[in-house]
Lab assay of single mutants.
Amino acid sequence: MQRGKVKWFNNEKGYGFIEVEGGSDVFVHFTAIQGEGFKTLEEGQEVSFEIVQGNRGPQAANVVKL
């Protein structure tokens, strides 16, 4: 599992990016966020996640808020 901080997340569009220290930013879609109810992330929030290869490159999967 990787760890990072949410760079930004757009609730209306349902996606954003996670900053990884020493690495490239990783795309995150709301469907990758674990948990119940409305799935969103806050700027600066710490998360753990896996990186998978999506249609447009690397993206976050199994995102857990820390």
Rank of each mutant, 00 (worst) to 15 (best):
M1E: 13
Q2V: 14
Q2L: 13
Q2S: 09
R3E: 11
R3Y: 15
R3N: 07
R3T: 10
G4H: 02
G4Q: 02
K5R: 09
V6N: 01
K7P: 01
K7E: 03
F9N: 00
F9S: 02
F9K: 02
N10S: 14
N10K: 09
N10G: 08
N10I: 10
N10C: 10
N11V: 09
N11Y: 05
E12I: 03
E12Q: 14
K13H: 13
G14T: 02
G14Q: 03
G14L: 03
G14V: 01
Y15K: 03
Y15S: 03
G16C: 00
G16W: 00
G16L: 00
G16R: 00
F17Q: 04
F17L: 04
F17G: 03
I18W: 00
I18Q: 00
I18S: 00
E19K: 15
V20Y: 13
V20K: 15
V20W: 15
E21F: 08
G23S: 14
G23M: 13
G23H: 08
G23C: 15
S24L: 13
S24F: 10
D25F: 03
V26I: 11
V26E: 02
V28P: 01
V28N: 00
V28C: 14
H29Y: 04
F30K: 11
F30H: 10
T31N: 05
T31V: 02
T31C: 04
A32R: 06
I33R: 02
I33T: 02
Q34Y: 07
Q34K: 14
G35M: 13
G37C: 08
G37V: 06
F38Y: 12
F38V: 08
F38H: 04
F38W: 15
K39C: 06
E42A: 14
E42N: 11
E42Q: 15
E42H: 13
E43G: 15
G44D: 14
G44V: 02
G44M: 09
G44T: 06
G44R: 11
Q45M: 10
Q45G: 15
V47Y: 02
F49N: 00
I51L: 12
I51Q: 13
I51M: 14
I51S: 11
V52C: 11
V52G: 10
V52I: 11
V52F: 10
Q53C: 14
Q53P: 06
G54V: 04
N55S: 15
N55M: 02
N55F: 15
N55P: 10
R56M: 07
G57S: 06
Q59E: 05
A60L: 01
A60M: 01
A61W: 12
A61K: 14
V63Y: 01
V63H: 01
V64Y: 08
K65I: 15
K65C: 09
L66H: 03
